Every structure is written in structure tokens, then in C-alpha cells.
Simulated assay, not measured.
Amino acid sequence: MSENSDVVDYIKEVRLILADSIDTLLNLQYDLCYDKDDEIVPINNAVELVDMSYDLSHSEKLKKAETEFLRRDC
């Protein structure tokens, strides 16, 4: 039974970590949005979490490229 309880504890810990990650990504998404009228949609599964992390990464890369372009243009 000890092995089963270890697995259950591990799964609970992973779920807590994912929940914290979702909260963090939602906060980042809110901070990164230019238009505050956008509705924030709750994340319901890990696939959406991964998709959101890719979207945030892409958005940050675009912002950085834009900043560097403007700096070079001046």
C-alpha cells in the first residue's frame, strides 16, 4: 500500500503545481494584454495550459523584436 500512497501523493503534488502554474500564466496573460476588454477564459486542462504558454512566449518574442527594431530605427 505504501507504493500506492506514494503515487497518490505524487499526483496530488503535481496537480497543485499545475494549478499554481495556471494561476501564474493567467496573471501573465492579463498583464500582457493591451486591450483590457478581452475576456479571460479559464484553463480547464493541461493542453490549454501548454498552448497558452506557447502563445505567451510568442507574444514576448514579438514584443522584444519590436523594441529592438524601434531602437535600431532611431
Rank of each mutant, 00 (worst) to 15 (best):
E68Y: 10
C74F: 06
L56A: 14
D23G: 10
D20P: 11
M1E: 09
L16K: 05
S21Y: 04
L70G: 05
E66R: 04
S5K: 04
E68T: 11
F69M: 12
Y10P: 01
S2W: 12
L32N: 13
V14N: 10
V14H: 05
V7F: 04
N4T: 13
S5R: 02
A19D: 12
L32Q: 06
P42S: 00
R15A: 13
D20T: 14
D55Q: 11
L70M: 04
N4K: 03
D6H: 03
C33Q: 07
A19E: 14
L70F: 04
N44K: 08
F69S: 10
R15H: 03
V7R: 03
I40E: 02
K36H: 05
N27P: 04
R72Y: 07
L70A: 03
L32E: 11
F69G: 03
V47G: 00
E3C: 04
I17N: 11
Y54E: 12
S2M: 15
R15K: 12
E13P: 08
D73Y: 03
R72H: 11
Y30R: 09
C33G: 03
M1Q: 06
T24A: 03
K63Y: 08
V14S: 06
L56T: 15
P42G: 00
Q29C: 06
A46M: 07
H58K: 12
